[in-house]
Amino acid sequence: MLSWVSRCCSSSFRRFPDISDTDDEGSSSSSNADPLVWRRGLDKHSSGEFSFAVVQANRVIEDYSQVEIGSNAFFVGVYDGHGGPDASQYVSNNLFQNLISRAQDDGNISEETIRSAFAATEDGFMTVVRRGFEIKPMIAGVGSCVLVGVIWKGSLYVANLGDSRAIIGYTTGSSNKINVEQLTSDHNASREEIRRELIAAHPNDPRIIVNRGTWRVKDKIQISRSIGDAFLKRPEFRLDSSYPRFYVPEPITRPVLSAEPSVSSRVLQPTDKFLIFASDGLWENLTNEEAAEIVHRNPRNGIARKLVKASVKEAIKKRGIEYKDLVKIGGGGRREYHDDITVIVVFLDNERVAAQELSYRGGFAEPTGPSNFRDIQELM
């Protein structure tokens, strides 16, 4: 297990293929080529199509993600890591399999099945932290936001920890105007609702939230829910002052952060047109409505990459540089301008289509193998 932790922390963007960055997915321009962008322009799932794109900003990318296609089911996962890639990679490797295992036990996928899969994933990563803490204490400071979408038997389930976000675009009546609904709530201390929630849960802790220009939990982190971040959950993983990034003067006597996801479900309707799942790097620069309009008004092929590029362009506009100059900057240097960004756009075509049961992971040009949805084929 410790060798796995070591491999996680030494991983870099080399797992991403150098794919030409194009404006229309049909032609490439070397002057606009971005070696830190990965994409799949358009692929089929069991009830429509999806587009997938990732751009790196950090020296070691901390966003992991996946798409799992079943014969009559679909899974999307966006895992925005912080403090390193260990937690987000662990979630990518284990959450979906935990969901499949729970579905086999329950004979179905439900909100409770999804909650159980999140709990098992948190417990599993805490075991990784426990085994590695003595050799690599900073593993206690690694965590991940988690955003999951599951389409199962005509219903959509969405679960999240942290501030990645999912929205749905839909029409009403005969109008072609796209309407937008946010499907998740951001677990971020910048929101007054979250600050009230933290204060109510920790009434005797005057430093539960601190504002030094940005609201932070215990003056360390903006999000209030995550997988990992053991130093803010369990006293045995407290880090001392030699690790200032993760040092909290007051001992943690009870968990400050939660791994309990917000979960919701809805029956999909013929008027539901598409879903956007993305890490907060997208939403820092685009509103829900702006992102939905880009999807609504442009061709499907390559639309996830178009959203990534629109967000990055908006971010660098404030810094006075052009996109052609940004693409010359390597991983690590890019973090000054934008975050790692993952975007998955899911089109809902209200009809079943033939789609192979495949597993896709962000950063790989081809499917990584068959999806484990096949293990619950008899439940579909």
Rank of each mutant, 00 (worst) to 15 (best):
C8Q: 05
S27L: 12
E49N: 08
E25V: 13
F13I: 12
S46L: 00
N58C: 06
S30M: 11
R59L: 11
F16N: 12
S47N: 11
S27R: 12
I19W: 02
K44H: 08
I61A: 06
V54M: 09
G48F: 02
S12R: 08
F50L: 00
A53Y: 03
S20Y: 07
V37C: 06
E25G: 15
R40F: 00
E62I: 03
A57M: 00
E49F: 09
P17E: 07
R14W: 06
G48A: 03
D24M: 05
A53K: 01
G41S: 15
Q56G: 11
G26E: 15
S27Q: 10
G41T: 12
D18Q: 14
S46T: 03
A57T: 02
I61W: 03
K44Y: 10
H45K: 04
F13K: 06
E49C: 05
S20W: 05
Q56R: 05
V37P: 02
D24L: 04
S47E: 11
S31V: 07
R39T: 05
E62N: 01
F16V: 13
N32G: 00
D34N: 04
G26S: 13
C8R: 03
F50H: 05
V54H: 14
G48W: 02
T22D: 04
P17K: 05
R14F: 08
P17M: 07
S47K: 07
D18I: 15
G48Q: 02
F16R: 07
D23H: 12
N32H: 07
E49R: 09
P17R: 08
D34V: 02
E49H: 10
F50V: 00
V37I: 14
S20R: 05
R39I: 03
L36R: 04
D24Y: 08
S10K: 14
D23T: 13
S10R: 14
